[in-house]
Write a protein that binds this DNA or RNA. Structure first.
Length: 740
DNA sequence: ACGCTTCCAGTTTTT
DNA sequence: CTGGAAGCGT
């Protein structure tokens, strides 16, 4: 028992030892939630004798799943296999593969990523004669994905959007899109969850089987679940009712991807009699950092409410700096890192976080010129690279020739003289026959209209036939060799001879190492040999397979990708209105802005010892230069926690003289001004600004959360403690500004 | 069929 | 400023 609870604090212990029934753990940032989960798993197996195969443990990333596995293994002193530990997607895939024909899918179905989805949507638009200007494929993919997150099928979608021209159009596409997916024997990410839920709902026996199987369900990052995932867990936990969820409503930052913060906010309502435990002791950050984070998140209305505390010392104050422009900002970050490493600190103690990937460019340049090693996380992942996807398309098609999307991708890749006309003809013939394009291609000679292209098409089908045979006979690594050889893709890049082509060949070769390492891992995990099907599903569900980088490096990434990580020193750059919070979140809704604020909270709480917040007075993004006011989040942090560093002007090459001012004014046009007095709009005549506390004679006290327009027309949104959120006209509302 | 030019839009992205 | 897509000329 001591090995399980020995190093836990009281609250953590209570969570780990909780009895049967639903349990909600509200775990603040850095409060040891992974520790609680792993200890809970160990407790269930070691003390309660629950067989590992009857525990479902769900995380959001493969990385988190791996982490939990290795940490549980450490507790056990040996590796115990939890067959149902993984991501929502991998677990659903596993359930679906156990009963593949229940939903009309054939075995060997493949998984579509976003790019495949977009391609398929474009095909649907063309077939429906719809204009992709009016119905941008990106937006449609998004709408379809959101619908699936909310368990809305095409029929329901159509019904609930009757009369709306745009959404009815989306419904049309959605319907055809699903039809094609089934024909092509493919599922997208959303389908994995949606179909698993559908399968459980429609088949009593299957449902009963899983409901009995899972005596305990544990879910990490519960604040990021969507409705479909909520439903899945809800159905599966109905018999044993042991649902143990861990999350932090203040870290819900994926609403735009369908995550429904309601799931965690209303867990107690949905699971009556649940045990709720708050983990508020933070083991990560200094008091100043936590205070700043608490200051920011306090301004959100939609939250459970929780205040983190720490036994660590105050540490240094939040370092704020206004750079003249983005170039200068990057220079400063780089120079601080250089200075600190000269004092003996390691590069991997630093992370630089930003709102959008496009911001990384300047930073990379600045770090490069100083020879500071760095790694950009996120961005295009290895398996998304064009050349890698092409190879995978060959593999997918060999496994599943029904897949027209992959066929169209590679039929003329490398060039073999099959152009648009031929492809369209094959497509039309296939459509009128009700068969797949591959069937038509292989019989190209039978169709007079294809006669002229027959030889070139045959060249392609011969390759695929060879690969289909090989796919059944060869182990995956040998099969890969054959794909390289038969497709001629590497040969094509070799002929190109450019630097870019060489890097593409490098990536293709890298894919082989990915295969080899999965082949090693696979039998360990499942006891089976890795099949082509297994490999393809594996990589479809993994993103973090990037090549390891040698040596210590500075981590640079978006705020989103930083979730779950920690660093001694964190820089957040671009703390500006319109950047962070993003322009869209300011204009769209209060909810979106609250999510943005949570993102800020996530960012600040990544820091253990030091945090630097940067903004610029001028920034070039997407080719145009803009002047942004400092982020409202800066104004929300108590000045007593901040230290404002101003510096000599200069555009990157000026002297790096840094002067410290005792106050916290922001330097603009040479005059220091108080952050709290900044207006949201440049030049606005209104006298209330976002973040300010105001009082209204009828509504009571509240906080200004957003505003739009200027002068007479200025509208502000105020969240009143008693009366809720109100939209008011600033000039008529007769608000009194409260001093703190 | 293919390559070259022009035009346009452009968050965040655990799967 | 980028990358992707559509359009046009060979």
């Amino acid at each position: 028992m001591d090995t399980i609870t020995g190093k836990l604090n009281e609250m953590q212990k209570k969570a780990v030892l909780a009895g049967d029934g639903p349990v909600l753990i509200l775990a603040g940032a850095g409060s040891g939630k992974t520790r609680v989960l792993t200890h809970r798993l160990a407790y269930l197996v070691m003390e309660k004798n629950v067989p590992p195969q009857s525990i479902m443990a769900i995380t959001f990333t493969n990385k988190a799943a791996r982490e939990i596995r290795t940490r549980v293994a450490r507790l056990f002193g040996e590796s115990v296999w939890f067959p149902w530990a993984g991501t929502f997607h991998s677990i659903c895939l596993k359930m679906l593969k156990m009963f593949p024909d229940s939903l009309g899918y054939r075995e060997n179905f493949v998984i579509y990523d976003q790019e495949d989805q977009k391609t398929l949507v474009k095909d649907c638009l063309k077939e429906l004669n719809m204009d992709s200007k009016i119905f941008p494929p990106r937006m449609i993919v998004h709408s379809i994905s959101r619908a699936k997150d909310e368990l809305i099928d095409p029929e329901k979608y159509k019904k609930s959007n009757e009369g709306d021209y745009r959404l009815s159009g989306v419904a049309e596409v959605y319907e055809l899109y699903q039809k094609k997916l089934l024909e092509y024997n493919a599922m997208d990410f959303g389908d994995l969850i949606f179909n698993a839920v559908t399968m459980l709902e429609n088949f009593d026996k299957i449902r009963g089987y899983f409901q009995n199987l899972f005596r305990h369900i544990l879910i990490d990052e519960y604040q990021d679940t969507n409705l479909a995932q909520y439903k899945l867990a809800n159905i599966l936990s109905r018999i044993h009712e042991n649902i143990f969820v861990v999350g932090d409503d203040d870290q819900s930052i994926y609403g735009w991807r369908g995550a429904d913060i309601r799931n965690i906010l209303e867990f107690e309502k949905d699971y009556k009699g649940c045990l709720t435990i708050r983990l508020e002791q933070n083991y990560r950050s200094t008091k100043n950092i936590l205070a700043a984070a608490n200051d920011v998140i306090r301004n959100n209305a939609r939250r459970k409410g929780k205040t983190l505390w720490s036994e660590k010392g105050d540490g240094s104050r939040v370092q704020c700096m206004t750079a003249s422009n983005d170039f200068n900002e990057a220079e400063k970050v780089a120079s601080i890192i250089a200075e600190e490493t000269e004092k003996g600190r390691k590069l991997d103690e630093f992370a630089v976080l930003y709102r959008v990937n496009a911001q990384s460019l300047r930073l990379e340049q600045a770090l490069k010129t100083r020879n500071i090693s760095y790694k950009v996380f996120g961005g295009t992942s290895f398996f998304q690279r064009k050349e890698v996807k092409d190879i995978i398309a060959y593999m997918k098609l060999a496994l599943n020739p029904d897949d027209n999307v992959q066929l169209k991708r590679i039929i003329n890749m490398p060039r073999r003289g099959i152009g648009k006309t031929t492809v369209t003809r094959i497509e039309e013939i296939a459509a009128s026959l009700g068969s797949d394009m591959y069937d038509v291609a292989i019989r190209a000679g039978d169709y007079s209209i294809l006669r002229s292209a027959e030889n070139r098409v045959k060249e392609f089908t011969v390759i695929i036939e060879k690969l289909r045979k090989a796919a059944k006979e060869l182990p995956v690594d040998d099969f890969y060799d054959m794909v390289i050889e038969a497709s001629g893709l590497v040969k094509m890049y070799e002929a190109e001879g450019t630097v870019e082509a060489r890097s593409r060949i490098g990536n293709i070769r890298e894919l082989k190492s990915a295969i080899l390492s999965s082949m090693e891992e696979f039998p360990e995990l499942t006891g089976d040999e890795m099949t082509l099907e297994g490999f393809l599903s594996n990589i479809a569900l993994s993103t973090d397979a990037d090549e390891e980088k040698e040596g210590p490096y500075v981590s640079i990434m978006t705020l989103h990708s930083a979730k779950g990580l920690e660093f001694p020193t964190v820089f957040i750059i671009g703390m500006e209105e319109g950047i962070f919070p993003s322009y869209q979140s300011i204009t769209e809704s209060a909810d979106r802005l609250e999510e943005e604020r949570r993102l800020c909270y996530v960012g600040i709480t990544r820091a253990m010892d030091e945090i630097y917040l940067f903004n610029t007075s001028e920034r070039t993004l997407y080719g145009h230069t803009q002047r942004n006011l400092p982020s409202r989040f800066l104004a929300e942090i108590s000045p007593t926690r901040m230290e404002y560093m101003s510096s000599g002007r200069g555009y990157g090459y000026g002297r790096k003289k840094t002067t410290r001012s005792t106050g916290f004014g922001l330097t603009r046009g040479g005059k220091p001004i108080d952050i709290a007095s900044l207006k949201v709009e440049a030049g606005g005549a209104a006298d209330v600004s976002t973040g300010q506390r105001v009082s209204h004679r009828k509504f009571g006290e509240g906080v200004v959360t957003s505003s739009e327009g200027t002068g007479e027309d200025k509208m502000i949104v105020v969240e009143f403690e008693e009366s809720g959120t109100k939209r008011l006209m600033a000039s008529y509302a007769k608000l009194k500004v409260l001093e703190d």
